[in-house]
């Protein structure tokens, strides 16, 4: 805020009903009401959406790249979570 410019907002758009909101970009706005309007003008002028979320960029908590290995590598060897891990006898269907 202040003379350093309006805060940054992250914009999420639902492209059509049945889909989740997806991150499309960011913009500057003085407050939430203007942010959602600016998002409409900036990101949906070619009918790209039916619903918009705006979130102050500062409100996002992200996982840290430093913890990337500890966060995501342990999932790598749990192959039994995936259906392709299992052997299915020939001829068995709908499994």
């Amino acid at each position: 805020m202040s003379s350093r410019g309006w805060p940054l907002w992250e914009v999420f758009v639902r492209a059509r009903r049945g889909l989740a909101h997806t991150h499309v970009g960011s913009l500057h706005a003085p407050d939430a009401e203007m942010a959602v309007r600016n998002a409409r003008d900036v990101f949906t002028r070619r009918s790209e959406g039916v619903s918009i979320w705006v979130v102050p960029a500062a409100a996002i908590t992200a996982s840290s790249p430093d913890e990337k290995d500890a966060f995501f590598d342990p999932a790598g060897d749990k192959v039994y979570r995936h259906p392709t891990f299992y052997e299915v006898p020939e001829g068995v269907e709908h499994l």
């Binding site: 805020m1 202040s2 003379s3 410019g5 309006w6 003085p30 407050d31 939430a32 009401e33 203007m34 959602v36 979320w53």
Partner: peptide, 20 residues
């Protein structure tokens, strides 16, 4: 204009936005 919008936002900061 930019300064006015900042000032307004500061005054009305308590107003809550719609639920996502």
């Amino acid at each position: 204009v930019r300064a006015a919008a900042d000032a307004y936002a500061a005054k009305h900061a308590s107003r809550s936005a719609g639920t996502a």
